[in-house]
Design a binder for these strands. Structure first.
Lengths: 339, 339
DNA sequence: CAGTCTTGCTAAAACGATTTACCTATTTGG
DNA sequence: CCAAATAGGTAAATCGTTTTAGCAAGACTG
């Protein structure tokens, strides 16, 4: 057993001290008084034997595993997972933590079992990541171990990390205003009248609130609004076809996400309308494809990397409350100022 | 310590047996002879106390952690990581394993340290995933623990999982042949003459080999070939603009990946050429955007999910050799048969 | 009826760290 | 010069499992 690795006892023997000494010295424990010489001998022995501590033994004794569980509902369905995981991964590496990634498929039963599995491994903290941001009902909240909800909120868990959607919405409006386009903008994806009282999801709701309050603050209203439930390119295409062929064509389209905008690009090409000369476009998310479009799509980005990193930080140094991460404006080429 | 969880000793006490008995019964060890009644008492006690074994203690004793390290060079740069991780994650869940995700940034030094960190945690196996498929030089290969290279190969590690690029290449040619287009196809991304002796990467080399051998087998040659080093949409756009405006415009474009094809789509729209009526398009990867295009892009898919799953399977049940995973043809609407 | 098997179980030694409670010299203080 | 403090360490318990070795009592065998 032990795969033949050197143990602390080996180091102790070589340094001619007890393993208690080795433990204390190597772990850099303060308030201890070993001679300079002993320090050196221990370090040399450890280096010579290329000693590495056995994490399981340490976890057993200390009940800390230096691992964080990243539990998500779907790693699958969304390209967003990537950024969240990436951010979390990097932050945990620099915190000296390892990330255990797990998936629940969104089923509450599996969620509870997955949390249990994480607890069995004595994880130092748990991140519950929701890929479709929303209000989460946790079937169980383990006591005494830090937990944060990423990209969602939960009554059961006071700590969460979310994109600052409301401000993002306002920023989008501000950007269009700066270009002098606010007089002729259509909103693609949501219609206040049609979706009155319908609940989309918490962040999306906030995104809309931000947009509305931005418009109001400027005394502006949308030239038109179109309701679309599924924000997929094909629906964006259809919507744009309708909007852009009408009598007074809007000068700008504010799409509620990049996939809708992508569909709108296709419609513009098909109609021979040049972006941004004839139609300006702005949207949300900063999906990978936003950079591929010609011209590039100006969009308010979901700061997934940053969010993942913040979640780790807040698990390592617990802190209550909802943390809003700024959604940066990514300026590309799809907006032209009206003259 | 122990966070107050029930231990095996608690179960033993409640069932009125020793913990050795509990251990053997709960782990379903064969060739043991406890009475039916004892079995029952132990199971009942465990259930009543909702006992869960401490993974660290078990790992310490058995030197197996039921965790697999998924070590990748970049989770970052590529949307492919997603599929690989997803496949690996699901397979490990059904094997009763946990996945520890780690990243090396592609630096050999960090790679070695990361492998060490994995070994410190007594992982049951290691998956080295390369996001840009290639020949990998491993700075260290731990003895006695199963390891497989995912999406790459390595002299130091006999087990690997790769897409079957060569067959994929041949299948692409076969598909174009079936549509009767082989007489007028341009290859976008590689030119035999220009890139003679240049090494792209192992899988890409095979992809090209497959394409070549498919063409040869049919006695066909490309109408034109264009060399592009960076397979990004903007380059695909430029290439297609050049190809499609020439004297005898090719009937079909075989793009070496979907991003090039995406650029070609943009060029077609701009030139007013209808896909697939006037130009057929086929490519490789099945990038997410392939489904968004209008019409959908017919492509030979990289089977990332399947590959991730296979890597886990081969770590759990070690087996040497290179495993080639079939790249399925995803039929969408970008090819029309010539008449 | 003595010896051997079987049945059903347990005591105790690992595994490799951390941590508590000492222990022995030597200094220091008064 | 004696008591107390300090310096420099160590022995052993502990974390929660798994596993080896073996015990006691009854059932067979010859």
């Amino acid at each position: 057993m032990g795969r033949g690795r050197t143990t602390m006892a080996d180091v102790a023997k070589r340094a001619g001290v007890s393993s208690a000494t080795v433990s204390m010295i190597l772990s850099g424990r303060p308030d201890t008084r070993f001679s300079q010489e002993t320090h050196q001998r221990v370090h040399e022995a450890a280096a010579a034997l290329s000693y590495r501590p056995n994490v399981a033994a340490r976890a057993l004794r200390t009940d800390r595993s230096h691992a964080i569980a990243f539990i998500s509902d779907h790693v699958a369905t969304t390209r967003f997972a990537n950024g969240l995981i990436r951010g979390a991964l990097r932050a945990s590496a620099s915190e000296g933590q390892t990330l255990m990634v797990m998936e629940t498929g969104g089923e509450p039963g599996r969620e509870a079992r997955t949390i249990d599995a994480a607890l069995d491994r004595q994880v130092d903290g748990i991140i519950i990541a929701s890929m479709r941001a929303r209000e989460i009902t946790l079937s169980k909240t383990p006591p005494g171990i830090p937990m944060v909800v990423l990209n969602g909120t939960s009554r059961q868990c006071p700590a969460s990390v979310l994109p600052d959607e409301e401000r993002g919405g306002r920023d989008a409006v501000a950007r269009l205003d700066a270009a002098g386009l606010l007089g002729s903008v259509a909103l693609v994806g949501h219609e206040a009248a049609a979706e009155e009282g319908l609940f989309r999801s918490l962040p999306i709701q906030r995104r809309l609130d931000g947009i509305r309050s931005g418009m109001e603050a400027r005394g502006a209203t949308f030239a038109r609004e179109l309701s679309i439930w599924e924000w997929e390119p094909s629906n964006g295409y259809a919507a744009a076809m309708e909007l852009l062929q009408g009598a007074d064509r809007p000068r700008a389209l504010l799409c509620l996400n990049d996939r809708l905008a992508f569909g709108a690009y296709q419609a513009c090409m098909e109609l021979g309308l040049r972006i941004p000369e004839e139609v300006s476009l702005m949207s949300f998310d900063n999906d990978e494809l936003a950079a591929y479009l010609r011209p590039g799509l100006t969009t308010i980005a979901l700061p997934h990397d940053e969010m993942g990193a913040r979640a780790v930080a807040r698990v390592v140094r617990p802190e209550e409350g909802e943390e809003l991460v700024t959604m940066p404006l990514i300026e590309r080429g799809s907006i032209r100022a009206a003259r």
